[in-house]
Nucleic acid binder design. Structure first.
Lengths: 189, 189
DNA sequence: ACCTGAACACCGTTCAAGT
DNA sequence: ACCTGAACACCGTTCAAGT
């Protein structure tokens, strides 16, 4: 793809993200206009509205994964995961899409679908992470990693959603500490 | 409203629920046809597609509340909540709408929106429930009820979603036991 | 390849007319 | 009040034509 094409594509993505934040959903005509392109031109870059939405939401999750999930953090399991939670809270506090996506107050079903898939994927990844720590002897052998992974990810998600909707958000470090305490309690039960 | 009108309304609701299960979303023409009524006739009972969807999804939550949330269960807090979790798992295993709603694999944004609101509401209700037990001295005074409520409801939701998507679901009683163990660990931390 | 803008298609909604 | 079915409206998508 040419550099001109790439730049247009980026303009469309940025316009779509802004439109999503402003209206809890996107309108193709509005996005095209904001991006300075015709509707037909937009469709040259994205085959359908759902594809454009998917690109915007996937970019959000890619940012999160890069800063939190794939981050190389040294130390024993508990230290690593505690630090990961800190980073995840900071990420959600800072990213402009987080409040909208995390509360699911969205007018497009495609966003909700991707989000649900992403949460299920995170739960499975967490389960695998727990199982690895379990094999190392860092977690009790009795832990059901599959269920605990779902509990940790589903719970953390809702805790962050709750914090993001409060008028006065708790400090990121305090929220991370409380969240970690609950996560630690689950895996040590 | 006349008994004839009420019966028609019920037929529409039943057709919509079936359509939702069969197609992960509803089509007004399809629902009207399945309910044996014209499109215009359907609109006599529901002002918009979103209202019909809301009625179907709200009925699901009303069933859950009746069997689980508002149920009068005797005994101390831990006994009560453990029993509540058992009933919630049984409810989700039995209700035909549960797999679809709980996994959010839905083609209508309205469903996702209602579901997100309902989960946030459940988290606040759980927080109030925890606070009451805390005042009774049944839970540690250090517990942050607001965050714990979000953790419990968000986590439980994802655990049940995970179980419902497995080809071989764990036995309801075992799932309830494991879920309760994790919930108890959170509030006793 | 990249883009335009008018025509098209799909599906939710309305409405004049009937019982 | 309850219902019909054709017309309407809205918005995502296509496409012939341009650079």
């Amino acid at each position: 793809m040419s550099s001109r094409g790439l730049r247009t594509r980026e303009r469309i993505l940025a316009a779509a993200e802004q439109d999503l934040i402003a209206h809890d959903g996107i309108d193709i005509v509005r996005v095209a206009s904001a991006a300075g392109i015709s509707v037909g031109g937009l469709y040259h870059h994205f085959a359908a509205k759902d594809d454009l939405l998917a690109a915007v939401v996937t970019a959000f999750h890619a940012r999160h994964n890069e800063q939190v999930i794939y981050a190389e953090i040294p130390g024993p399991w508990r230290e690593r995961e505690r630090e990961r939670i800190r980073r995840s809270v900071r990420f959600h506090y800072a990213d402009p899409l987080a409040p909208l996506l995390v509360t699911r107050a969205v007018t497009d079903a495609q966003i909700a679908r991707i989000d649900a898939q992403e949460l299920a994927r995170a739960a499975r990844a967490s389960a695998a992470n727990l199982a690895a720590a379990q094999r190392n002897g860092e977690l009790p052998a009795t832990l059901d990693c599959d269920l605990a992974g779902a509990m940790l990810m589903g719970g953390s998600r809702q805790v962050i959603a709750r914090a993001l909707t409060l008028k006065r958000r708790p400090a990121a470090s305090r929220l991370a500490d409380e969240l970690w305490a609950m996560c630690a309690a689950i895996v040590d039960a």
